[in-house]
Amino acid sequence: MKFQNYILGILIVGLLFSCASSSKLSSQGEQKEKLSHIIESKNFEIEVNWALPFTTVSLQNVFNALAPIGSTAGRINLMGFSSFLKMKGDTISANLPYYGERQMGGGYNTRDSGINFETAPDDLKIEYNDEKNRYELSFSAEQGTEDYRVNMVVLPNLNSYINVNSSQRFSIRYEGKIKELREE
């Protein structure tokens, strides 16, 4: 009798786990569909919540005295700031704060110290990576005399990662969430 109860218990637990995993798969499929719709519409915004600069000794020394609450030199909290990368049709615009060191060129004025551009890139690539279950986007942009190479990864859970390589600054990475833009 004990053996039968033991077997029955294992079957019930197995049934519960199989039901949970199928609903999880269904949910993942819905997330993937939603993401596909957002990316293919080319009408989205990535709201940036974190900046992850290339941390050098100089940046570490300066940042220790100036760090916002909840931040370190390698991970800066941007929640509450208007930091974004938007795509509307064939136009991509960005307003991203920059933390890091300049390698050359440019001034240290406070007006255009961030990564700000609005462009219609002719080298935009949007690909879905089946192996990694994610979208990968890349393009080039420029702001004055500075050139940027932007690579983005967007996951089905809507988490987004933006890597910006610059001709005049050390690279920086941003993390945020993608969302569909509302019609105005």
Rank of each mutant, 00 (worst) to 15 (best):
M1G: 09
M1I: 09
M1T: 06
M1W: 08
F3C: 05
F3I: 15
Q4D: 14
Y6R: 14
I10G: 06
L11V: 15
L11Y: 10
G14F: 12
L15G: 11
L15M: 12
L16Y: 07
C19Y: 14
K24S: 13
L25R: 15
L25F: 12
S26T: 05
S26H: 07
S27W: 11
Q28D: 14
Q28Y: 11
E30A: 15
Q31I: 04
E33L: 10
K34T: 09
K34F: 06
L35Q: 03
H37A: 11
E45Y: 01
E47G: 05
N49G: 13
A51R: 00
P53C: 07
T55S: 12
T56Q: 05
N61D: 04
N61C: 05
V62A: 11
V62G: 04
V62D: 02
F63K: 06
N64K: 15
A65K: 14
A67D: 03
P68W: 10
G70T: 04
G70R: 03
A73H: 04
R75C: 09
I76H: 01
N77S: 08
N77G: 03
M79G: 01
M79E: 08
M79L: 11
F81P: 00
F81N: 07
F81I: 06
S83E: 05
S83I: 00
F84A: 03
G89E: 10
G89I: 07
T91C: 09
I92D: 01
I92Q: 02
I92R: 02
S93K: 08
N95E: 15
N95I: 05
P97N: 03
P97R: 02
Y98V: 04
Y99G: 03
Y99P: 03
E101R: 13
Q103N: 08
Q103H: 01
M104P: 00
M104V: 15
G105A: 14
G107E: 07
N109S: 14
N109K: 08
T110V: 08
T110S: 13
R111H: 08
S113R: 01
I115S: 05
E118M: 08
T119M: 09
D123K: 06
D123S: 09
D123G: 09
D123R: 06
K125A: 02
E127L: 11
E127H: 06
N129G: 04
D130N: 15
E131W: 01
R134L: 14
L137S: 03
Q143S: 14
E146D: 06
Y148C: 05
Y148I: 05
N151D: 15
V153Y: 02
V153I: 15
V154G: 00
N157Y: 05
L158I: 10
S160N: 07
S160W: 04
Y161T: 11
V164D: 00
V164F: 01
N165A: 13
S166M: 03
S167Y: 04
Q168S: 13
Q168D: 14
R169A: 01
F170N: 08
S171P: 05
I172N: 01
R173M: 11
Y174W: 12
E175I: 06
I178W: 10
E183I: 12
E184I: 13
E184M: 12
